[in-house]
Design a protein around this nucleic acid. Structure first.
Lengths: 200, 200
DNA sequence: ACTCCTAGCTAACAGTGATAGCCGATGTCG
DNA sequence: CGACATCGGCTATCACTGTTAGCTAGGAGT
């Protein structure tokens, strides 16, 4: 499927008029990381619209107008792109809970809404250990803070709540709930559990 | 890596003395499903000892003494083997909570212990929707019952507890908890939440 | 004894990530 | 201005994946 994507049939010929302003004056890292950003964006688009097995080196290349192997001129390997996409997702996810009331109900609702809007991306986040060396350390903290507040400063309870939200979302995305499940009611039940635990 | 596994170098030659008693008198389905059971066992062993990317059609064939493509004489495709392994895991997991006290603490501990003993298998369970047509319907019920009891009959709360346990395990297996996390304490906090919610 | 089917085999295909090596264009420097 | 190095494409290729096609040895049944 998908012929070479019409991006200059063979030979490189007229590359000059399809390059989106290579900006020859920019420092090397900038030029290169512009391409990288383009790749990450394409990877994310592919992931979100067609699922994880659609994001392939060759399709990624086609999406940015090159030939697959050429990707390796910009990126060490595929996992680097995946990691970048994951970090992007993690960043957005952490921003989604900023400004919402520090309540289990509200935080879980915010997470859930985002996850249902970006299911493939969300599942990508849960696949890898999230290599803490690459992610800005304040990111996960910022995502965790509202739950810590919601649990009255109990970090263990906050982590349990985090696990619960993650578990709820994962089960819903993987369609593991029994067909008759009222997922909203399950969220409410979880909220009850964690709200009363805080009072305790 | 891994030369053809020394299972009769080339040509099929002396198959007769390596076949584990083909039992020529058995009905066809029995013979075939014996091989299938052997395959599932090999797949599980490969999965548990070397992880999911090690379970490969060719390696699976080598493990049972045949050549890869020959697997398709016994099984429609790879996913069927995966599904069978998953059902096996699900069955064991459901048996693990039989007989433990119907408490969040005990149930979650039982799940966690099993999951840590079979991490790759556990993660396999969470990957697919668990195709309910293939799994005996009483299985998931039986696994769910203790939690329903533990939550005083509140099915929604039971499902929330299930999501919590799943989430806790998944986070631990994926090493997503911050390095300083006291996982036991997180379990205790979750138990507190769900125990007090039941009283509520 | 003849036939048929089971269950193995090899060869091959399309697709995966990744590497090697070629080369045109570009920017830099003597 | 010309030599030259680097950058960023390309093709060919590799090892590997799941899967299909087609061959055939040998046991089972008539």
């Amino acid at each position: 499927m998908t012929p070479p994507s019409e991006a200059t049939p063979a030979g490189r010929a007229d590359r000059s008029d399809m390059r989106p302003a290579p900006a020859t004056g920019m420092p090397v890292v900038e030029r290169s990381s512009a391409r990288k950003a383009q790749l990450v964006a394409a990877a994310r688009h592919l992931l979100e619209t067609e699922g994880v097995e659609a994001v392939t080196i060759r399709r990624l290349g086609a999406a940015v107008g090159m030939r697959g192997p050429s990707l390796y001129k910009h990126v060490p390997d595929k996992s680097a792109i995946e990691a970048a996409v994951a970090i992007e997702g993690l960043t957005e996810l952490s921003e989604v809970v900023r400004g919402v009331p520090a309540t289990f109900t509200d935080v879980s609702h915010a997470y859930r809404t985002w996850a249902l809007a970006h299911p493939h991306l969300y599942r990508l986040l849960n696949k890898h250990p999230v290599d803490r060396s690459r992610v800005p350390p304040e990111l996960e903290d910022r995502a965790a803070d509202p739950l810590i507040v919601a649990t009255g400063g109990d970090r263990d309870l906050a982590r349990a709540a985090w696990a619960t939200i993650n578990g709820l979302i994962e089960l819903e995305l993987a369609r593991r709930f029994p067909p008759d499940t009222d997922v909203d009611a399950v969220y409410s039940a979880a909220a009850r559990a964690f709200d009363t635990a805080r009072a305790d």
